[in-house]
Amino acid sequence: MHISTNLWIWIQALLTLAIFTFLYKDNPLFRMAEHLFVGLATGYGLVVVYKNAFYPNVWVPLFQEKQFIFIIPFVLGLLYLTSAFPKISYMIRWPMAVLLGIGSGLSIPLTIQTYIIEQSKSSILRPPYPDLISWINALILFVGVVSVLVYFYFSIPHDRPGVKQISKVGLFLLMLGFGASFGYTVMARFSLLVGRLDFLLNKWLGIRPF
């Protein structure tokens, strides 16, 4: 056991323990650590955005290289700040209109292609398949997609013969999906806790694994 002598490790460890105190109940120590995190994350974010985004993309081309075309995005960006001044806050609509227009134009065709066309294509049965396992996989996928779509199709009553049975298959497959998703969630939540415990034991207290 070699307890760390690094000041930063100690700060990390004490802040981790401060956050863990919430397990008992809300308290000033927890709130202090929480506020410190929010403040630090914001400050860090501002510095990185300035250094990696604003300085090379706005300051250098506009003020150092005198490329005056950059005035247009710069002014549009500044107009976002008008939301703080009620008299001229309507101006925020202009950069938002530009952003929404460009964003929609870029994303609509690609989104339809990615989410609807490509993914629908992959769920259609397209024999022949190289082996039995591939056949079974394709069938499960096909039946799964159809039955789940029927389960969520509410324009016809679900008590009709055929529809009832298919939607039940869909429900069963949905439950399987939720179960798998829950398993992943348990692993993910444990991972976060284990990550902190590993830090406290290994880096802070210096308890090396045997």
Binding site: S122, L141, A188, S191
Partner: peptide, 14 residues
Amino acid sequence: TGVSAGDFYPYIQA
């Protein structure tokens, strides 16, 4: 992350 893994299987399938 494990939590979001389930959302991405359709992309592998496709």
